[in-house]
Design a protein around this nucleic acid. Structure first.
Lengths: 227, 227
DNA sequence: CGGTTTCTTGAACGAGGTCAAGTTGTGTGG
DNA sequence: CCACACAACTTGACCTCGTTCAAGAAACCG
């Protein structure tokens, strides 16, 4: 398995390798579930689908968190998005997935046949609008992500990231993902993420209660950083 | 007009300011054209719509080139995409445009009422699928753009950019946009774009016949750069 | 516990940004 | 047609931010 990591490039820090093996007792593969309201379970770092897989399903997150990502030829990884409960992922233009999807944490997702969705959309105006709206939400999020990647400094990127993750009425953020995940999402290195968080803490904008538990102590400062 | 530029930040290089004045003899505003197969004309740097405008129309490019972009609070500009003939732009999730659209060159675009499109999509399966497909194409392009912005070096960004612009059977690229446009699209500065192009020429990958006319002399090298 | 993964911190380096000219190209008026 | 003005582009010198390389600390787990 570590050989497989090496193949992906010479990154010094191991990128969490998606596990392709289904957990004992896990629900059957989507292919065996034409249209199931029954959620599937995926263990942490399990692969939900891979780049190149037939894009036969779309998914809705029920619990946990999912990342959609792309592995570049040089071994680096780009994370396209993190998906929270109620988010829909797996939109594709072509017949195959251009990205892969992996479980950031243990999670439950509901699969939905793409063909079913699309034929329903053809008959039901409401369904069509719904599908279109989900696609547009995905587009809107990706646009904002691109803006951030193109024009943001490291502190800016992290401020936006944290503010986008936190609940409106709770100043505590529980990070489901690793520093490497954050780095690959923000186009930074793991070290820069770590250092920048430390700096933000030094400036009083946040408090790092634990590595994965961050308190936003000064949203004004954070929002100012966003530009 | 230059005061307005200054307001947008302290950039040393003037970002081409969208001209809001309609040219004498130009076609009427879209608002007066419910659903017109008649293309509208926009002069170079004319604003097609602004951020915050009601997103009542989508547009298809007939001729020329259009950029969709966003002006940040710090005065910098992010170019979301360039649109060539046959491309559709103006997709929005909300009621207002989150981006603005401007004519890179003199251009013709066909406006299409969003409400009309969406109600047609509700009735006609083919129309629905078409609209959805256009949105997905936009999503796919934005995803790839985000990947490039997040993980690319300057030479890599320019190699991808040039290869994405050139015709399959012609090694000459006619650049419709300025260096500033390219920089804002690739998340670089105008100087880095200029320097990197010069380097690519020195390495024999391209030949800069004129500032706006580039010949791809070695696609193998360029493709290798893309990673 | 000890081993492993994850995270943090330090020091040196380098790609790209910033600042500052200079050059080329283009449209305008004489 | 040339002279001028202005915009677009290029190039050089220097600097900064983020990466790279290298340890070390902290958290996690069998």
């Amino acid at each position: 398995m570590s050989a497989s990591i090496a193949l992906r490039g010479d990154n010094r820090f191991a990128i969490p390798q998606a596990v392709k093996v289904w957990k004992a007792g896990a629900v059957a593969r989507p292919a065996e579930v034409p249209f199931s309201p029954a959620p599937l379970h995926f263990a942490q770092d399990a692969e939900i689908y891979a780049e190149g897989d037939e894009a036969a399903y779309m998914y809705k997150v029920v619990s946990g968190m999912v990342r959609t990502c792309k592995f570049q030829n040089d071994g680096r990884r780009h994370i396209d998005a993190f998906h929270k409960p109620d988010d829909i992922f797996g939109f594709e233009l072509g017949a195959e997935h251009a990205l892969s999807a992996e479980a950031v944490t243990d999670c439950m997702v509901v699969p939905c046949r793409r063909r079913t969705l699309e034929s329903q959309a053809g008959q039901d105006e409401v369904m069509a609008m719904q599908l279109y709206t989900y696609a547009m939400q995905s587009l809107e999020r990706t646009r904002q992500h691109a803006q951030l990647l193109g024009r943001g400094s490291a502190p800016q990127k992290l401020a936006v990231f944290l503010l986008g993750l936190v609940d409106k009425h709770d100043d505590e953020v529980e990070l489901a993902m690793t520093r490497q995940d954050i780095a690959d999402y923000l186009g930074l290195t793991i070290e820069t993420v770590s250092r920048t968080l430390s700096n933000l803490e030094r400036e009083g904008a946040i408090r790092i209660a634990a590595a994965r538990r961050i308190e936003l102590t000064d949203r004004v400062v954070l929002r100012a950083l966003c530009g």
